[in-house]
Design a protein around this nucleic acid. Structure first.
Lengths: 152, 152
DNA sequence: CCGATATCGTGGAGATTGTCAACGATGGAG
DNA sequence: CTCCATCGTTGACAATCTCCACGATATCGG
């Protein structure tokens, strides 16, 4: 068909493929979350809050999510207003606020998880479970390698 | 086993890893491009314009990049103002405008390519070339599988 | 040929996100 | 106690995404 591809075709650029694939997953996930009043961002925060029984500091949230701390403020505000998480004072540092999931937060997570997984699975499509594992491993190494790249 | 995994930890979520990795690459690429007055978006358009000797319709650009056509307008406007691409009429369809790279566009591409590749390589870090090939293949399948997902 | 309908590029509105600078409150080191 | 780093927060601004609507074509059915 086309004059297909020299070594430097955009279609073969890892960065481009990453951005493109990410976009597809974000859209699919948002579509699965829209009926719950969540978006992929706030959903991620909710998950992290659920994972930490003691709560997570907003600073750590920003670090893990690769966001600017100021963005985390709004996300937590939103979730807190919905009663899904709450800010607890840290008894170790009065500056720190630990974000923890409420009962409602845990409940919603349990209810939403399968739907999000289904949406993700649909995007993963024809990849075998071995390939999915491989992909997860490779991406994990890319992400965790740079312990740093605080967006701001 | 199962519906594909999920330790249920956000760190193991493919969608999250994808989004995170994408962010890292976009930032690294933008940093490499900033001194040329380009961003990752316009750079992608420039590459596609360079790849097609006859030019690419803006509709096709939107399709390939996963963007809304209205976004493409501004990107092409910007590149055209910089003299890197130009809009040519199509002799097959008077509605269509074919975006093609100018001499300056091709020149800039050649000059910038190695820098972007270096930035990407830095992000790929410790992945072996085999792993990089594998990653590219897996991502390519994810992206191309959904021939559709026009953002708008 | 004519009219209904679809497509291409464009423009605009509004929400979401990314980036950056600064501030008050606190913690820690000297 | 003083100086400096850190945490959360706020504000500003650019960039991006998402939708909607329009004029200029193209295409199809009749």
């Amino acid at each position: 068909m086309e004059p297909t591809v020299n070594a430097h075709a955009l279609n073969d650029d890892v960065g481009f493929l990453l951005s493109r694939a990410s976009g597809l997953f974000v859209r699919a996930t948002n579509a699965a979350l829209v009926s719950y009043g969540l978006r992929v961002r706030s959903y991620s925060v909710l998950l992290l809050a659920c994972e930490a029984t003691e709560g997570v500091s907003q600073r750590d949230l920003a670090e893990v999510l690769g966001l600017d701390p100021s963005q985390v403020v709004l996300l937590v505000d939103e979730l807190a207003e919905s009663g899904l998480v709450e800010r607890r004072p840290s008894d170790q540092d009065r500056r720190t606020k630990l974000v923890a999931a409420t009962e409602a937060g845990h409940t919603l997570r349990v209810r939403v998880l399968p739907e999000v997984d289904a949406a993700v699975a649909a995007q993963l499509g024809d990849l075998t479970s071995t390939e999915q594992f491989l992909l997860r491993d490779l991406l994990g190494r890319l992400v965790r390698r740079t312990g740093s790249t605080p967006p701001a």
